Simulated assay, not measured.
Amino acid sequence: MKRFLRAAALAAGLAAVVLAGADRPAHAAPKKSFKVAYTVYIGFMPLAYMKSSGIMKKWADKYGLDIELIQANDYVGSVNQFIAGEIDAVGVASMDGLTMPAAGGVDTSVFLITDYSNGNDIVLSKTAKDIKELAGQDVYLLQYSVSHYLLNRGLQQAGVTDPTATKTVNISDSEIAAAYVSQKDLAHAVSWKPLTEDMEKVAGTTVLFDSSKIPGEIMDVFVGKTEVLKDNPDFAKAVIGAWYEALGVLKAGGAKGDEMRAVMTSAMGTDAGGLQSQLDTTHFFYTPAEALAFLTSAENAKIWDSIRTFCFSQGLFGQGATSVDSIGIEVADGTVLGDKGNIKMRINPTFTKLAVDGKL
């Protein structure tokens, strides 16, 4: 999955908002057909099983809906489709939900959290043995991505507070693994599984920092437009219900669990070992109670504050943003980080709470 923001993608998204969002009534009539897009990343792959097993259809039928699950080839493209209203929900890294649709002016709500990276994302080096040694060095990564955020947080934890202490060099996710393996002068890099599996095998490589040191900060979520979720709560209920039924299968194991793993493995183009490696470093919220506890915790609000601070410092709120408070983020308890008059990102635990209470 390409977990990143490109300026061009944001510009395209903004244009789409202007074209697709103009003159939309505040509350549209309830609709019956929905599209949910996701890309190939471990945190989203239960949707492949939800589709193939009929679990999604079962929950959609319960509410008289038609819900299509779409595995998209292009991550940024799927987010732009969401911004344009061509799909109703999309799986994103939480940071990208803030810097793409929300920063682009779309009132966006997180209605499902799937997981957080718990070691999937790593900072590695062929020569350094401590992340502090990266000060003054070139570090190759996908700029403005969760890799960039991870590096920043690793340096902060090591006491390096100057964000310009290292020079980040942009490289695409499709190139970084091969470049690190083949180029001796590319000594330091940040990336994620499965790309890092070959990178870690390079002689002398040390993992300097990984996402398990910042638990919960690199979240994967599904977002919807706030007005769509408000007008169509049954849509969110169906997706949530199907999600937790599928995760129950994965957690329980057995024959059905093996079947689900096989579906996920095939959809990701990996093997059983590759799947397990990624599961081992991903913290899934297997029950709605676990997800609700995380979403409503004080720590979650602190995480969003950290995310927004990084995004603003990198200019990802757009040229019109004058401070970190330019965009309002409403966390689960109703507290707003930033501008209360410009809330564009909302952490909505309502549907997860219904699942906890058995009221889906």
Rank of each mutant, 00 (worst) to 15 (best):
F222T: 06
E227S: 10
N232A: 14
L155E: 04
V207H: 01
E259S: 08
G269W: 01
T166E: 00
Y144S: 09
L150G: 03
M268L: 13
S147E: 14
D185K: 00
Q183C: 07
S182N: 09
D173I: 02
E227A: 13
K184T: 07
K230T: 13
S212K: 07
P194F: 00
S145E: 02
G154L: 03
E200I: 15
A236S: 06
P194E: 09
S182T: 14
F222I: 04
M219P: 00
K201E: 02
V202Q: 03
T168H: 09
G241L: 02
M264S: 02
V190A: 11
K230V: 11
T196S: 13
A189Q: 08
A165V: 08
V228T: 13
T166K: 00
S174F: 14
L186K: 07
N170L: 09
L208S: 01
W192H: 04
P163H: 13
S147R: 11
V160A: 00
S182W: 09
K213H: 07
T166F: 06
T226Y: 04
V221Y: 02
D258V: 15
V263Y: 15
G159F: 00
M268K: 00
N152I: 08
D185H: 10
Y244S: 12
T168F: 11
S182R: 14
I240C: 11
A242P: 05
A236R: 07
D198W: 14
L229D: 02
Q156N: 09
V146R: 10
E175L: 04
K201D: 03
A252L: 07
A178C: 10
F235S: 10
V146N: 14
P215F: 02
K167A: 09
A179L: 12
V228W: 12
T206V: 10
A246N: 13
A246L: 14
A262R: 12
S211N: 04
N152F: 04
V169P: 03
L150Q: 04
Q157T: 02
D173A: 12
E217L: 12
L195K: 14
S212I: 03
L151H: 05
Y180L: 06
M219T: 00
F222M: 10
G269F: 02
V223A: 08
A238E: 06
D185G: 03
D220W: 06
G269N: 09
I176N: 02
K193R: 15
A252P: 01
A252V: 03
D231L: 03
F222S: 10
T265P: 01
V160Y: 02
T205F: 06
G159N: 04
M268N: 03
A236I: 01
Q156G: 10
G204Y: 06
E197C: 04
T206Y: 12
W243G: 14
A236K: 05
W243C: 12
E217S: 00
H148M: 08
K213L: 07
R261C: 04
L195F: 13
A255P: 05
A238I: 07
L186W: 13
M219S: 05
V223T: 04
L250T: 03
A187W: 03
M199P: 00
I171M: 10
I171D: 06
V249G: 03
L250I: 02
K193N: 13
M268Y: 00
D198N: 15
G254E: 09
S182A: 12
G159L: 06
V263P: 14
S211D: 01
T226H: 08
V263W: 14
I214L: 04
Y144H: 12
T164G: 11
A267E: 05
D173S: 12
A252G: 11
K193H: 14
S147D: 14
I171V: 13
